[in-house]
Design a protein around this nucleic acid. Sequence first.
DNA 1: CTGAAAGCGCTTACAG
DNA 2: CTGAAAGCGCTTACAG
Lengths: 365, 365
Amino acid sequence: MPSAPRKRSNRPATLADVGREAGVSAMAVSAVLNGARTSTRISRETRARIREAAIKLQYRPNAAARALAQRRMNTIGVAAVINEGGEFDHYFLEAFNGVIHSAALHNQTTTVFALHDWQRDAGRIGSFCDGRIDGLILIAPILGEDPARYLPLHTPLVAMHANGPLPGVVGIDTDEEPGAFQIVRELVAAGHRRILHITGNRGLVGAERRISGYRRALESASIPFDPDLLVAGRFSSVAGCEVMQAWLQRHAGQALPDAVFCASDAIALGALEALSAAGLVVPRDLSIVGFDDTLAARTTVPQLTTVRQPIRAMAMRAVETLLERIQSHLDQTVPEAPSSIVFPVEIVHRDSVLPPRQPRPKVPA
Amino acid sequence: MPSAPRKRSNRPATLADVGREAGVSAMAVSAVLNGARTSTRISRETRARIREAAIKLQYRPNAAARALAQRRMNTIGVAAVINEGGEFDHYFLEAFNGVIHSAALHNQTTTVFALHDWQRDAGRIGSFCDGRIDGLILIAPILGEDPARYLPLHTPLVAMHANGPLPGVVGIDTDEEPGAFQIVRELVAAGHRRILHITGNRGLVGAERRISGYRRALESASIPFDPDLLVAGRFSSVAGCEVMQAWLQRHAGQALPDAVFCASDAIALGALEALSAAGLVVPRDLSIVGFDDTLAARTTVPQLTTVRQPIRAMAMRAVETLLERIQSHLDQTVPEAPSSIVFPVEIVHRDSVLPPRQPRPKVPA
DNA sequence: CTGAAAGCGCTTACAG
DNA sequence: CTGAAAGCGCTTACAG
């Protein structure tokens, strides 16, 4: 008759408990449960006994202890701004989905560090890297001048859509400029010439690249740039609505643009509201296109023609790259993983573009 | 001249490193940096020296080591299904926002365990609870018969919108039945009598409670229940679209319902698409209402009148309750926190309800 | 090949 | 009051 198992009231079973139950050392249990080569020299029956004991005691290795011993937590971090209003959320959600999914495939868990604002919270990045994660993914970070100040030394990092290159950090980006170029060229091809561009936050590289693509497309079609058709906005639907509304007011009774190129789907969502409030019908009276292809693009009426960025795929790649970096950091080898990855974009055709209406409508008074 | 700092090439500084740098024991460093009472007996100058050394070496306490010693990770887990299609995402996102926010307020980080499907993945819950989190929040879990099988013994748990009571788990729910009752009563008050209800997944308590509220509201208004106006759906916009479309086809040329009560905003989104595709205009031809008040309710045209569940507040409360449970678990005291919390719901009036059109329109053929 | 010991980096309980 | 020691639960390097 085996000795009665010692129940430690409130605590989960430890390796030692399992060893005691099975009549072997904790080390033997570790070897068997981890499938180490060592375990092959333990008899079949003993191994079975150990496994039974582990199940009986519902043994589960303590992650913190394991992390301490192995120097690896098997957890990756994601730092991102998660807006309350739900504005930026679609982008984040898609990225997050990709990260979670890919991490799970590699048996890693994911920890989220929510920031309010990069400017204010950049200083906190270092404090995340205290051994609870093995590496960190920065989602659309804006670190300003001298970003190195904020970057921890001992934690591998990957950044998606960083606002500029970050020393030692793998950058994952998209062909934003060519994407903007291409969609504006398609508008031109559809017969549009007066194309309004509502920009993202001026100064952010994402906004500037889209402006650059817009201008290059006009140039390539020999359409002179009209400063009145470039309006500074922000990456939010609230801004899209305000900016569109203001433009319509300033131009009451004058010519409507043929089309509006919004620097993001969120902006397009807001612009759509403003246009609809002004009694204009999209795409009959004017066409509109977005950028990103987030969920927003499919829930609007009409559904948006937009530039698709493969956010989810990028996020999955971010995880894989990060894991490679973590491994080489542990092995103290030079990483073979690339230090920069750029994904192509793709135009998604939906229902928000038609040839210009003839005769060209005016802005309602 | 102070001794040159020993640089351990690739590794972050430890307590011992800081001690060495400052010429004191690791323990003294720990006491000072943690603000322990003990530290008051360390001289002002020594304390300053220790702080300087910590900054100089960029010392950051190792989370795993601390967790092992303290038996506390300062991390809470969230287990949820995060759909790829973006269907359930709004609910999750809002809950997640609340969790993250509240956790950050309490200096806790949040780890996410993404599930594909509760039925299939329930068995994995236990494996999350391996010391990497101090407690776990289950988002809308469906654990089937004998849920105790899946619940870990040593980890405090809180569940939001669980599909039935879970032993030992704090439940956080909403007044779904009264919410459904109330919004259907409002439709009735607006003059509607033929009210179609598209249900959520039959069998889920969330769906059944909404059906019950719907039926009770009809009864209380002496409107006989018409089985033809209760159609079984699923909690998704795809389902909402399919079900609405099928109903319209089956009733071509017959009377249109006065209004549609959808068991969720997502369903309403889909139903709206189907109605619009059939050439019907909401709310002129018929009214429609949703349930949840997720982001979807504000991005549709027209914006949805719906039953608001305070998801974010619930999630924040879930965190607070969980932290109380964790504390009493650590103290081995009986928890004072409640074992069940029900939040009220609220009708949000937007633009998708008007009095019935006269004469009542027919379903287009 | 194998098993007892040392160590991961921290905190806490306890002897001086 | 204070500081050296033991311990958290695991793994790994190393002596037998």
